[in-house]
Computed example of a mutant assay.
Amino acid sequence: MPEKYKASVAICTYNRLSLLKLCIESIAALKTPPDLFEVLIIDNNSTDGTEEFCKTVSQHYPNHQWRYIKEINQGIAFARTRGAKEATGDIVAYIDDDCLAEANWLDEITSFYDSNAEAMSTGGRIIPKYLVPVADWFGKYFWGLVGSYDLGKSVFQMKSVRYPSGANMHFRKAAFEKYGYFDGNLGRSGKSLMAGEEKAMYLKLIHANEKVFYLPHVIVHHHVEGNKFDKEYVKRHSMGIGGSERLMNKGSFLKLSLKFLEYFAKLGYAIAYGFTYLLQGKPDKMWMLIKFRWWVIEGFLNPEKTKR
């Protein structure tokens, strides 16, 4: 067993034992030889039997190196930071606990880094795997709600406003050593649906002119549970987006003003575009699109409400 692995797969989890088991199965089924990587399961205070199960994983998959880690600071940013600190691999590959990795997932990641020494981080495609029928009001403007992430079939360098999604993102370990870790003031924590911890991390890399790439052949499938279509959940999710942007831009009146204007412009567009849904006889789509944009503004104006 090597002292240092080529890659560390980090699974951050919180009270999703049934889906975590499926995620672990997909990692155990990777084509990558198990002696080349370790798997870190970072438990963020789960109360559903996750700890007990994780301590038996090595019995089910004895050829792999599993490490169970308990992160007591609540929040996805703290869990992801703990994964980066604990990792011994040259590459830290994150996958969410409700995702399934395709068999060539890690091979595609490591081969890209081997061939591209300048790459500091990468992100892949995320395909929704619906566990329930989609809601009637659901449309393209809600792809983020179900974790869908698809920027096409070509590899390209990501700049400016584009950055990978947290459910399928990968870094050189050196990125954290050079630029620090995820901001604990951002991201989901318990029932809070704040976001932005991965965006803030990527902005540090991009502003430092580090190279971040989109890899379309690095694919995970994201389980979409029924609560994602609950309107109260959508409201909290939307407000979390706005609240996170407020926190990321605090201290800069100019940035806050520009973001505020951007959100109101998007609300205006949503109202105008919503009428096309109305003309198609789809009023639910119109109202949810408008509400989504308004809830984002509401969260931006009052970020403390998003933490409840």
Rank of each mutant, 00 (worst) to 15 (best):
Met1Ala: 11
Tyr14Thr: 05
Asn15Tyr: 13
Leu17Lys: 08
Ser18Phe: 15
Lys21Asp: 12
Leu22Met: 09
Cys23Asp: 00
Cys23Arg: 05
Leu30Cys: 05
Thr32Ala: 15
Pro33Phe: 10
Pro34Ser: 14
Pro34Trp: 09
Glu38Leu: 06
Asp43Cys: 06
Phe53Val: 07
Thr56Met: 06
Ser58Val: 12
Asn63Lys: 11
Lys70Ala: 14
Ile72Arg: 13
Ile72Asn: 07
Asn73Arg: 12
Gln74Leu: 11
Gln74Cys: 14
Gly75Leu: 10
Gly75Tyr: 01
Ile76Gly: 00
Ala77Val: 11
Thr81Phe: 03
Lys85Met: 09
Glu86Val: 08
Asp90His: 05
Val92Gln: 05
Asp96Ala: 10
Asp98Pro: 04
Ala103Ile: 14
Trp105Ser: 04
Asp107Thr: 12
Asp107Arg: 03
Ser111Trp: 02
Ser111Glu: 07
Tyr113Leu: 08
Asp114Gly: 01
Ser115Val: 10
Ser115Trp: 03
Ala117Gly: 04
Glu118Asp: 15
Gly124Glu: 03
Gly124Asp: 14
Gly124Lys: 05
Ile126Arg: 04
Lys129Glu: 13
Tyr130His: 13
Leu131Gln: 08
Pro133Tyr: 11
Gly139Asp: 08
Lys140Gln: 15
Gly147Glu: 04
Tyr149Arg: 05
Leu151Met: 08
Ser154Cys: 07
Val155Cys: 08
Phe156Pro: 09
Gln157Met: 07
Ser160Ala: 14
Val161Asp: 11
Tyr163Trp: 14
Ser165Asp: 13
Ser165Gly: 13
Asn168Trp: 02
Met169Ile: 15
Met169Pro: 03
Met169His: 06
His170Ile: 13
Arg172Gly: 05
Phe176Lys: 02
Tyr179Arg: 13
Gly180Thr: 02
Asp183Tyr: 02
Gly184Gln: 12
Gly184Ser: 11
Ser189Pro: 08
Ser192Cys: 08
Glu198Gly: 04
Lys199Pro: 00
Ala200Met: 09
Ala200Ile: 05
Met201Val: 07
Leu203Thr: 03
Lys204Val: 06
His207Trp: 12
Asn209Ala: 10
Val212Ala: 01
Phe213Trp: 12
Tyr214Gly: 00
Leu215Ile: 11
His217Tyr: 09
His217Gln: 12
Val220Gln: 04
Lys235Val: 01
His237Ser: 06
His237Pro: 02
Ser238Phe: 06
Met239Lys: 06
Ile241His: 03
Gly242Asp: 08
Leu247Ile: 02
Asn249Met: 00
Ser252Asp: 00
Leu254His: 01
Leu256Lys: 00
Leu258Asn: 09
Tyr263Glu: 05
Tyr263Arg: 10
Leu267Thr: 09
Gly268Val: 09
Tyr269Thr: 12
Tyr269Ala: 14
Ile271Phe: 13
Tyr273Cys: 12
Phe275Cys: 06
Thr276Val: 02
Tyr277Ser: 02
Leu278Lys: 15
Gln280Leu: 12
Trp287Pro: 00
Met288Phe: 09
Lys291Phe: 11
Arg293Ile: 04
Trp294Thr: 11
Trp295Phe: 10
Ile297Thr: 05
Glu298Gly: 00
Pro303Lys: 09
Pro303Ala: 04
Lys305Phe: 05
Lys307Glu: 07
